[in-house]
Amino acid sequence: MNKVLTISASPHSFGVDSTQKIMYGVVLALLPALAASIYYFGIGALIVTAAAVISSVGFEYLIQKYVMKVKPSISDGSAMVTGLLLAFNLPTNIPIGLVILGSLISIGVGKLSFGGIGQNPFNPALVGRVFLLISYPVQMTSWPKPIIGRMNYLDAETGATPLAVVKEGLKNGESFSSIDIPAYLDLFFGYLGGCAGEISAFAILIGGIYMLWKKIITWHIPLTVLGSMVFFSGLLYLINPEGFADPIFHLITGGAMLGAFFMATDMVSSPMSVKGQIIFAIGIGFLTIVIRVFGAYPEGVSFAILIMNAFVPLLNTYFKPKRFGEVKKNG
């Protein structure tokens, strides 16, 4: 019995999950949304997505290898997720150059400048998107109209998103019911202008349910984000149904679904305790509605998430999980 035995402290048994599995699980969950995007936006969706994924992974590899001089970690799949999410947050007729620039900002500034995976305080894809949105507002806000089987890329005919239409209309004193927007069922399945991956609430729901089933995410953040959006927009709608859009409209348009299921749930930049996550999610819902209704932009999910990302360290410090057998302090 002269075997060299391995020694380590308990536990000696481990779960089967790994960072890779989680990341590729997210990629898998994003595929329905990608399919919807290609269905409605055609070749442009494919080009933008491919460019974002390839450049994100490429930048991660190059920066880690030659700038940071560490072992590249592209195999964990996190750069791929960032690339996909970035692409999903861009219009499908955006020039490739901007996509690559966005990837560089996402990966280089949003992620690696903080030390790489696990260290970034902000969702890297959103950092890239907001950078582009502020720097190239024209390209970033010309939305191609959904046309099934479209084959043209840059010169796609564009139009405003329903959110922008409603915002403009309400600002001009029209009543909500008189504004011409597509049927809700069309909006739910994705027949509307918008960013590549955000249009189909239906496809995102499929992905979200998959992630919930695989326990990649928990229900707390997505449901609370959507719930609080419904609550705050509902409040406004009840006060004045003609002056404000109804909650369902808020849910199925813009980036609400994509943000709630894929962006706000980003593990790295969301709080650790359930209490913290709930507050984080309520904040996102609230800020989204505030920006959509009162802000300068028609859409506010990205900003809301980034703002709440900044509160995460605070939430982690002040909202601890409930300790077992917590002894109430005197007083």
Binding site: L5, I7, A9
Partner: peptide, 22 residues
């Protein structure tokens, strides 16, 4: 000579608290 292989976290104190060593 090593009589076993330590596979835990790379800290002397942790290994010391665990057992007599490799």
């Amino acid at each position: 000579p090593n009589t076993n292989k330590y596979d835990g976290a790379g800290s002397c104190t942790i290994a010391h608290n665990l057992y007599g060593g490799e």
